[in-house]
C-alpha cells in the first residue's frame, strides 16, 4: 500500500502526522510514532513567553539574596543561571533528528517580531526540516481591526520566511471573516502550507478558588466539520500544502480529511487519549479502508471530495441550510 505523501515540499511515508503536544517532546515517543507509521512529527511549541518567563524566574531566583551577607554572597553555582528554553528546544530537535528518519518539524509561538525571527532561525539551525508557526493570538484590544490582525499574521509569515530557508507552515485558528482570502494572503506571504485549525486555550472559572483557570479540552470527532469545510474549499488550488488538524479520533476522520483534500492529517488529542500506539490504529485503519476499496495508493482518493472536484461543488456552500 503506497501511503507516500508530499507535504511542504517534503516526502513523507504516510499522511498521518503527530501534531505538537507534550507527547512529541519525548524522543522515545517520537521513535515509537515512527515505528507505528507516522509520516512526521511536529515537536511541542517553543513559546517565547515561556522562555522569557523562565529566564526571568531563574534570574530572580538565582540572584535572590545575593551580595547581601558576607558569608553567602551567592547561593547557587554559576551553572544554575544558565540560559534556558531555546537551547533545550534545540537539543530536543537534535535528539529527535538523530533518533528517526521521518521529518521533524519545529513549532514556534513567539510574541515579538524579533522573537519569531530569532527563534525560527534557532529551530532551523538545530536541524528541524520545517517550522510550523503556531499563530495563537487573541486580539483582546477591541480597537484592533480585522485588517490589522490579518496584517499581523501576514507580517509574521513574511518575516520568518525571509529569515529561514526551510519550509514554513502557518497553523491558524478559524476566526477570520474571509478564511479563503486570508489563506491566499498567507500563501502569498510565503507560507508553504497551512494547518487548519488551531485550537485555543479558553479560560474557565474555578468556583472553589473563585479564579480563572486556563482550559483546553481534547478534541473530539465532532470537531472535524469546520476544518473539513475549509480544507475542502482550499484544496486543489495549488497554492501550497494543507494539513488538517482537530477531531481526528479514528481512521474515519483521517479518510474524510484526505478525501476533502488534506495533504496530511494531524492528531494530538487521540494520541494523548489513547497513547502513542494509537498511531498504528490510524495508519492501519487507513490501509484497511483503502484495501476494502481495492485501492493501493493514497493519491487515488486525495481531494476527490474537495470543492473543486466534488460532483456537487455547491454542497460546501449550502451545507448550512441543509436540514440535518
Amino acid at each position: 500500500m503506497d501511503l507516500r505523501t508530499r507535504y511542504l515540499g517534503l516526502d513523507l511515508s504516510s499522511p498521518i502526522v503527530a501534531a505538537a503536544s507534550p507527547l512529541t517532546g519525548e524522543v522515545d515517543n517520537i521513535r515509537r510514532l515512527e515505528d507505528m507509521g507516522a509520516g512526521a512529527v511536529v515537536l511541542p511549541s517553543l513559546f517565547e513567553e515561556e522562555i522569557e518567563q523562565n529566564e526571568q524566574t531563574i534570574e530572580r531566583l538565582s540572584t535572590a539574596g545575593i551580595e547581601s551577607y558576607a558569608e553567602a554572597l551567592t547561593y547557587f553555582p554559576a551553572a544554575a543561571s544558565c540560559r534556558t528554553g531555546c537551547e533545550r528546544y534545540q537539543e530536543l530537535v537534535g535528539r529527535a533528528r538523530s533518533a528517526v528518519d521521518m521529518p521533524i518539524f519545529g513549532s514556534l509561538n513567539a510574541k515579538s517580531e524579533r522573537g519569531w525571527v530569532d527563534y525560527a532561525r534557532a529551530i532551523e539551525a538545530a536541524g528541524a526540516q520545517a517550522i510550523e508557526l503556531n499563530l495563537h493570538f487573541i486580539p483582546m484590544d477591541p480597537s484592533l481591526s480585522g485588517r490589522e490582525v490579518e496584517e499581523r499574521y501576514r507580517g509574521i509569515v513574511k518575516a520568518v520566511k525571509n529569515a529561514v530557508t526551510i519550509p514554513v507552515a502557518a497553523k491558524l485558528g478559524p476566526y477570520f471573516s474571509a478564511m479563503g482570502h486570508m489563506a491566499g494572503e498567507l500563501f502569498a506571504a510565503g507560507a508553504d502550507g497551512l494547518v487548519l485549525f488551531n485550537r485555543f486555550y479558553e479560560p474557565d472559572i474555578d468556583l472553589a478558588e473563585l479564579s480563572l483557570s486556563p482550559h483546553l479540552d481534547l478534541s473530539t470527532a465532532s470537531e472535524i466539520r469546520l476544518p473539513l469545510l475549509w480544507i475542502g474549499i482550499l484544496a486543489g488550488r495549488g497554492a501550497g500544502s494543507l494539513a488538517a488538524s482537530s477531531g481526528v479520533e479514528s481512521a474515519d476522520e483521517v479518510v474524510k480529511y484526505l478525501l476533502a483534500g488534506a495533504d496530511v492529517v494531524m492528531t494530538a488529542s487521540a494520541l494523548i487519549r489513547h497513547g502513542v500506539g494509537h498511531m498504528r490504529a490510524l495508519v492501519d485503519g487507513l490501509r484497511t479502508w483503502l484495501a476494502a476499496r481495492n485501492l493501493d495508493a493514497l493519491d487515488a482518493i486525495r481531494g476527490s471530495l474537495c470543492q473543486r472536484e466534488a460532483a456537487d461543488p455547491t454542497a460546501f456552500e449550502r451545507a448550512n441550510y441543509v436540514k440535518i
Binding site: I51, E52, E55, Q56, E59, S81, R83, G85, R114
Partner: peptide, 9 residues
C-alpha cells in the same frame, strides 16, 4: 553578563 540568561533580560 546577561547574555547567558536570555535576550529578554
Amino acid at each position: 553578563t546577561y547574555g547567558a540568561k536570555g535576550e529578554k533580560v
